[in-house]
Design a protein around this nucleic acid. Structure first.
Lengths: 120, 120
DNA sequence: TCAATGTTTCAAGAATCATTGAGATGATGG
DNA sequence: CCATCATCTCAATGATTCTTGAAACATTGA
């Protein structure tokens, strides 16, 4: 994740509808959701508006799509999301563990403390 | 950190000059940097442009300012930054440790594995 | 092949955001 | 008090982004 990708990802996440889409898709897991279902769940938004935001997110690399019959199924790109977190943290932690440590504490509320993590 | 704050923070970080300012200030640490010095370091930008971006960042809560003589010194708001990371992670990890674990590994490159972190 | 369904594409208009330059404000030293 | 320095504010302009509605495209079932 370089600066340019991070910029694009931040821009994608800085819009209410898109942020909600991403959150929804992350919780939806690997099966993902059809564009229409996302629209209903998120906003009651028109199909063209949803399509606009979904393709914006796809350009930014935050979601992926596949066709299933007439529907197009979107899934969250978990790898890119964690890359963004990494980017933020790498930048923020340089000699300032007071940034990382609260983040680490937050992580431990949903992941087992992976103390096996190797120093890259 | 609620959705609205996160949205504002993402918007603030989605602009090249502002993202660079934040990175610069984080590495500058608690002493911070004067507006003029930030401008030179980041961009060679005009003073009014710098002021625009700095106050945008301040509104978003990502930086703080204090006056010192004629200069105004800006510092990164580390707490808000880690709050944003937390927000991203809380949302992204729900039942999907494949998002958190790489982030955790990344963290461990700059922070000691804080396995003492308590489950909130 | 036809009609229906789910989604995308396109063009136009409204809204928001970034940059510029001029001028205002506030602090300092002589 | 005046000149200077550092920064901010404001209004105008240009650029980008979001929304809307109409039309196109792709897939399915009859």
């Amino acid at each position: 994740m370089d600066e340019k990708q991070a910029l694009t990802a931040f821009a994608a996440l800085s819009q209410e509808t898109r942020l909600r889409i991403v959150r929804l898709l992350v919780t939806a897991g690997p099966e993902g959701m059809a564009a229409g279902a996302i629209g209903e769940a998120v906003d009651g938004a028109s199909s063209s508006r949803m399509s606009f935001h979904l393709s914006h997110l796809e350009q930014a690399g935050l979601v992926e799509s596949r066709r299933a019959g007439r529907s197009i199924i979107y899934t969250a790109a978990l790898g890119v999301l964690s890359g963004l977190i990494e980017f933020l943290m790498r930048d923020c932690c340089q000699g300032h563990p007071e940034v990382c440590n609260p983040a680490m504490a937050a992580l431990s509320t949903c992941c087992e403390p992976t103390k096996a993590a190797t120093h890259a």
